[in-house]
Simulated scan of single mutants.
Amino acid sequence: MQSTNSRRAASKVSSAPWYAHRWPWLLMLGPIIVVIAGIHTTWIAFTRQDALVVDDYYKQGKAINQDLSRDRVAASMKLRASIRYDASSGRLLGNVRSLGQPVGSSLTIKLVHSTQPQKDVVLQVQPDAEGSFAVALPMLDRARWQVSMEGAGRNWRLHDVWDWPVQRSVELSADRTD
């Protein structure tokens, strides 16, 4: 008697349509999630601007030679700079020297965020007679910053990478070896 009851139960279960069982739905869930994720990724790719690609890459490539000449001028002047960020006062402090003497002319300091160009900062500073400067700077994000310092006439340039806040300060030197 039990075998006929179990046969009836088995035939009852197998006679139900496929969509009444949970296993086909569970098996289809993975591919459905992948399709939805693909559609979402495609939407993100087409609606967000890629900040790492520049429109004038050809002009920037041609300008590399000019940049190298500015580095050579900085090396001939034996330029050195040190920069540190004091988060408690919200100030960028630094010192610039050429041939051991302080640099007193105005400078442009660029802090370029590694991935978000809207967070880039350009500062105009005027060092004092000792070559020291201090300028207000909003809170820096935890990031790897490209630091560039140029003279007023853009005839020289110092640059380096600053991993804030791992590095509390950065030393820029024209004669460093990469």
Results as ranks from 00 to 15, higher is better:
L27R: 15
L29D: 13
P31N: 11
P31M: 14
I33V: 15
V34S: 13
I36A: 14
I36S: 11
A37K: 12
A37S: 14
A37G: 14
G38F: 13
G38L: 08
I39A: 11
I39F: 14
H40W: 13
T41F: 09
T41N: 09
W43E: 08
W43N: 09
A45R: 12
T47C: 06
R48D: 11
R48F: 07
Q49E: 10
D50L: 15
A51R: 07
A51T: 10
A51M: 06
L52D: 08
L52F: 08
V53D: 11
V54L: 14
V54S: 15
D55G: 15
D56M: 12
D56S: 10
Y57S: 15
Y58N: 08
Y58A: 14
Q60F: 14
G61L: 10
G61W: 09
A63V: 03
A63Q: 13
I64P: 04
I64N: 12
N65M: 11
Q66I: 13
D67G: 12
D67C: 07
L68M: 14
S69I: 13
S69F: 12
D71E: 10
R72N: 11
R72L: 12
M77I: 04
K78R: 14
K78I: 04
R80N: 07
S82G: 02
S82F: 03
I83W: 02
I83Q: 01
R84V: 03
Y85G: 02
Y85R: 04
A87I: 10
A87M: 07
S88N: 13
S88M: 10
S88H: 09
S88T: 12
G90Q: 07
R91I: 01
R91C: 02
R91A: 04
L93K: 03
L93R: 06
G94I: 00
G94L: 00
G94Q: 03
G94R: 02
G94E: 00
R97N: 04
L99E: 06
L99N: 08
G100R: 00
G100S: 04
Q101I: 00
Q101V: 01
P102Q: 01
P102W: 02
P102D: 01
V103K: 00
G104Y: 00
S105T: 04
S106N: 09
S106E: 06
S106R: 07
L107M: 01
T108F: 02
T108Y: 01
T108H: 01
I109C: 02
I109W: 00
K110S: 04
L111G: 00
V112I: 09
H113D: 08
S114I: 03
S114T: 06
P117F: 05
P117Q: 03
P117K: 05
Q118R: 11
K119E: 11
K119Q: 13
V121S: 05
V122W: 04
L123K: 09
Q124T: 10
V125S: 05
P127M: 01
D128Q: 05
A129N: 11
E130R: 10
S132A: 09
S132M: 05
F133H: 07
A134K: 06
A136E: 14
L137D: 08
D141L: 11
D141M: 09
R142S: 12
A143Q: 03
R144T: 08
R144I: 05
W145N: 01
W145A: 03
Q146N: 10
V147R: 03
M149P: 00
E150I: 06
A152Q: 13
A152G: 05
R154N: 08
W156K: 03
R157G: 00
H159T: 06
H159D: 12
